[in-house]
Simulated assay, not measured.
Amino acid sequence: MRISVHRGFLAGLLILLALALSGGALAALALGISPRLQLLSTRTVQAASFVHLGLVGWIGGMLTIVLAARLVRRPGLAALALPLALGALWQATWIVPYYTTNTVAHRTPLTVATINVQDGRADLDGLTAQLQTADVIVIVEHTDAARERLADRGLTESHPHAVHVGNGVGGTSIYSRLPLEDLGAGPTVFGSPVVRLDHPDGPLTLIAAHPVNPMGGAELWAEDAAALRAVILAHADGPVVVAGDLNAIDRHATMRPLLTTDGFRSTADLTGAGFPRTWPTREHGPFPVLGIDYVLVNAPLTAVSHRTFTVTGTDHVGIIAQVALRA
């Protein structure tokens, strides 16, 4: 009798835990679906950064319900896990594409690298070594001092064509082996330099992106992202590459129009490289949690490869991706 009571009490606790986990997962699902809900406040925008963790809630809730059913020897209780399984399947559809390759026949690849160097704090020796294979490099939160030190390390010799905007947190640079035409900078808070690259297979437009993060308020975050989107769409009649720190995950209200209506895809998605996590680095946290750095391409382009890299001194993981015009 005592064992039965203990089992019943423990099963009750497990059911309460399952309710808590599934409640959190349901909130994550709602935030991931509804841009309007995200934009209610700065807190809801920030909470939406973690919606993919809802999958953990669904699975954890399922397991605790099944365990509770086993403890009290009532198999029918396990049926309560069914709606949680449906929630888990729904959220899994957000992640599965990152493990499915979608590359197609293509022409000559262009290697694009991007990294946020955290106000110029990144180890520039390590960074220079990582960037040797890149044809085009986008660096955000770049400083004048870091630009000078990279020049001393030979980056301006290997990548002689460059465009620079701003300094510090608002600093962005594009370095290129290929000749480029400076098309100006978009009217975003930090400036969004736009260049046309003279690629052998035809000209490509590259946009270096670094809209503001939501810490300054949901309204400013959404407005700056909208300004960046307008810059992108102004050039989307041809092949476009967008690279940088977009300060939003793929389910955020600011990213979903680009990834759905506007037809852009991330190189991580196209190559099946796995679910992207680029912030914060292990140096600044237990492990990367959020995928907020991207290389994006529109329909005339595809991705050939995608990999990440780390250097000390910055809280962002860098990306090196090969993109190419479709054959």
Rank of each mutant, 00 (worst) to 15 (best):
T103L: 12
A47Q: 09
L80K: 00
V136N: 02
W94M: 00
A122T: 01
L82S: 11
G54T: 02
L39V: 14
H106D: 04
D125T: 11
R121A: 02
T128R: 13
R107D: 00
A85Y: 09
L53S: 08
T101K: 15
G76Q: 08
T143C: 10
A68Y: 03
I115N: 10
P75A: 12
S49Y: 14
L40F: 06
A47D: 05
G54M: 03
E141R: 02
L63T: 09
A81H: 12
T101M: 15
R147F: 07
L40I: 09
L40G: 14
I95H: 02
V138R: 11
I115S: 08
L80D: 00
Q46T: 10
V51H: 03
T100D: 11
G120R: 05
A134S: 05
L82F: 09
R70E: 05
I95F: 06
A69H: 14
Q46V: 10
A69S: 10
V51K: 01
V104C: 03
T100E: 13
T114C: 03
A48F: 13
T108P: 08
L131P: 10
N102P: 10
N116A: 03
G126H: 03
S41H: 06
T42R: 13
V66Q: 14
R149L: 11
H52D: 06
S41W: 08
L39F: 02
G126E: 02
V136S: 05
W94P: 02
G61F: 02
A48L: 04
T108G: 04
H142K: 13
V72K: 13
L150N: 06
L150Q: 06
A88T: 02
L67D: 03
R73S: 13
D125N: 14
R74Q: 11
Q91S: 12
R43Q: 14
I139R: 04
A69M: 00
L110S: 09
G87I: 09
L67V: 13
L86E: 05
T111A: 12
V96R: 14
T101D: 15
A68I: 04
T111E: 04
A48K: 15
V140Q: 01
D135W: 00
G120M: 01
M62L: 07
Q118C: 15
S49G: 12
D135R: 06
V136Y: 05
G57H: 03
L63W: 11
W58C: 00
L150S: 02
A122S: 03
A129Q: 12
A47Y: 12
I59E: 04
T114P: 03
V104I: 14
S49D: 04
G54K: 05
P109C: 02
I137T: 07
